[in-house]
Design a binder for these strands. Structure first.
Lengths: 212, 212
DNA sequence: CCATGTTAGACAGTAGAAGTATCCAATGAC
DNA sequence: GTCATTGGATACTTCTACTGTCTAACATGG
């Protein structure tokens, strides 16, 4: 298909598609001539994925490029793909790394018995958040963090279960990306609603029920 | 203290503090004269909170203002504060609301037996993500979503437990804000590490263990 | 073969967000 | 009394994510 059709079927404007091509988010089409290029279903898929990562999850264009880059180096096994995918996304902007929190994070991971890559960005992200909470006078110690980590374990089991039974390596990589990145806002939304519900439950027992 | 001291103790530049004052994120100090204003520990606290929301969690200035506004209308009970806090933050940018997903979200909440406010932004955020996943060819049905929701319930119990035993209403509101918003990147980081670990575990049993 | 409309690619322009810099008048400490 | 500092206003900068415009090369109908 031509770029105009790609635009029509994806709902993304031609100029924006050109922008994504320039930025290396979308692979170029098969050049038919100097002024004609042909795009296929994979381009459409990719474009929709890009829009989801940027629009729904709120990734920046450069973060999206990194993630998609990890996806491109596929044909490895699931584990490696997951590592690449996870490694490509930074959760917080950057860590200062000069606080005592990294050591605490290492200790937590050790206590959990987790096998996590030493340079995983998630380590820094966690350390960063802990440092912030400490500064704000609400430090979370390991006793508090541990049950959260156990729930994260269970979540991860659910996540990996969904990758079972998929043979195609590229398919696995893409699905892993969707589950890891795109599911995050959904899980946070579920948590917020659960908080509201739990708060309502506890409140109903003790005090007045003004509204609702 | 003067603005310069506020700047020094918070690590935020004077010009940025002025910017936050302009934007209404930080309440103005007590005016001593036309060119002198006095700031106290509350201002410092607030400023650190602002930096955490913007820097660690990645909220926009306007979203931060909304959240802090909800915090200002306190002296209500915990439940209401949580509702305000949660309502002030939108998880996704906006929803189209013309897809079938909202109904599906309603059904899920009904099935869960949750007491969630009808206009909670989290509903839209969830519907949005589900719509995206469907478009991308990886729809999540209720069977898949339910166990995630149950884990969210357990997480919410942990969250609310931490608010127990705090008497001061403002303190509760601030803590709720920290737990709800600032903890999110930490939980996502835990999930990613747990995924890596789970992936390593499963991989170790079946196939080659190339790297690690 | 030519006219016409479409397309790819290059390049410049724009809008919004988040600061940053500068200026100025009014202190307040010495 | 004087002079560095402060608060407030205003303008400027940087970055990001697009968006608009232009041009030359095509494809296609006549």
């Amino acid at each position: 298909m031509r770029m105009s059709e790609l635009s029509r079927r994806s709902g993304v404007s031609v100029t924006t598609i050109k922008y994504y091509l320039r930025e290396g988010l979308l692979p170029v089409g098969r050049q038919l001539s100097a002024t004609q290029a042909e795009y296929d279903e994979n381009h459409l898929r990719r474009l929709r994925l890009i829009r989801a990562l940027i629009g729904v999850r709120g990734l920046s264009v450069s973060a999206t490029r990194e993630v998609l880059g990890a996806l491109a180096g596929h044909t490895a096994d699931t584990h490696r793909i997951l590592g690449l995918t996870l490694g490509a996304i930074r959760l917080a902007d950057e860590a200062e790394a000069d606080s005592p929190e990294p050591a605490e994070v290492d200790a937590l991971i050790e206590e959990l018995g987790w096998d996590v890559h030493r340079s995983a960005p998630a380590r820094l992200a966690l350390a960063d958040t802990l440092a912030s909470l400490r500064t704000l006078g609400a430090p979370l110690d390991r006793r508090v963090l541990l049950p959260y980590a156990r729930l994260a374990e269970e979540t991860a089991v659910l996540d990996l279960d969904q990758l079972d039974g998929i043979e195609d390596s590229l398919e696995v990589a893409e699905r892993a990306l969707l589950l890891t990145v795109l599911l995050e806002p959904a899980l946070m939304a579920l948590r917020r609603m659960a908080q509201q519900n739990e708060s309502a439950r506890r409140h109903a027992g003790g005090a007045d029920r003004a509204d609702c």
